[in-house]
């Protein structure tokens, strides 16, 4: 890994500047954006649903365990699961997982195109390749990932229900009472702010890793790994900064 941080940061910013300029041909970009939405969205529903069920279930079971023998009423389980999902697990864990799935995929796709001279071929035609290859991915992610995060939050709440109600730990009414208690709308805003920021980080970082690949299959593998590693680190860093900023 090269820790020449400033150099890479500068290249990243310059790539973004190139990427976010006016498209040459709206209909081509629109088509590409739709394709990306399909890839990112439809392609990720199952995995997002799966992890969300378990996130909710684990949160519920562990909280029930912690409540044992305390004076805190058991219906707090619903309240905890809901806020945990909205504030933290739905945006953050979903995006960490998507960095692994979508991010590595984007880096590998762009890196392959770079190595097979597809990007050069497009450049020669006069295409702004940073713009055509990156912007549709970012736009698609900014639309689709918040939707996936919303889905994740709902499913996590469902997962909490499945883990506690059928097993007889609390009744459905108690769970629902928890879900309705102490609701703060701002938490939902916070969820979407996080979703947008994380979506932007994971797509741009991954595209950056792929776009500048050189060499052969080993470098391609590294770029794909770096896409996930750097996205994850930056997502967690941003998570912390947003938590400080938005709750102060």
């Amino acid at each position: 890994m090269n820790f020449n941080l400033l150099y890479h940061f500068g290249r990243y910013i310059m790539l973004l500047r190139q990427a976010f300029s006016r498209p040459e041909n709206w209909s081509m970009y629109w088509k590409e954006t739709l394709r990306q939405m399909n890839d990112i969205g439809i392609g990720s529903i199952v995995i997002v649903a799966l992890i969300s069920v378990f996130m909710g279930a684990v949160a519920a079971v562990q909280f029930a365990y912690q409540l044992d023998g305390t004076l805190v009423p058991r219906w707090y389980i619903g309240y905890i699961v809901r806020d945990l999902a909205i504030i933290e697990s739905a945006p953050t864990i979903t995006c960490l997982v998507l960095a692994g799935k979508v991010g590595s995929n984007m880096a590998a796709e762009l890196g392959g195109m770079r190595q097979k001279e597809h990007i050069d071929a497009m450049e020669i035609m006069g295409v702004n390749t940073a713009n055509y290859l990156i912007t549709p991915k970012v736009v698609a992610a900014l639309v689709v990932i918040p939707l996936l995060v919303t889905l994740s939050a709902y499913i996590a709440i469902g997962g909490g229900y499945l883990a506690t109600v059928p097993t007889g730990q609390i009744t459905a009414e108690e769970y629902a009472r928890g879900l309705r208690a102490f609701f703060i709308e701002f938490n939902v805003t916070m969820m979407y702010v996080k979703a947008f920021v994380f979506a932007f980080i994971l797509t741009t970082v991954s595209c950056f890793q792929g776009y500048y690949v050189q060499g052969g299959s080993i470098e391609l593998g590294k770029a794909s790994t770096n896409a996930v590693v750097f996205s994850n680190i930056l997502i967690l860093l941003a998570d912390y900064l947003l938590a400080v900023l938005l709750t102060s």
Partner: peptide, 18 residues
């Protein structure tokens, strides 16, 4: 890019979009 719109190029490895 304006100049390149007038350029056609065949790459040694063809570079077709697969």
């Amino acid at each position: 890019r304006e100049i390149r719109m007038q350029v056609g190029m065949l790459f040694q490895g063809s570079a077709l979009f697969d």
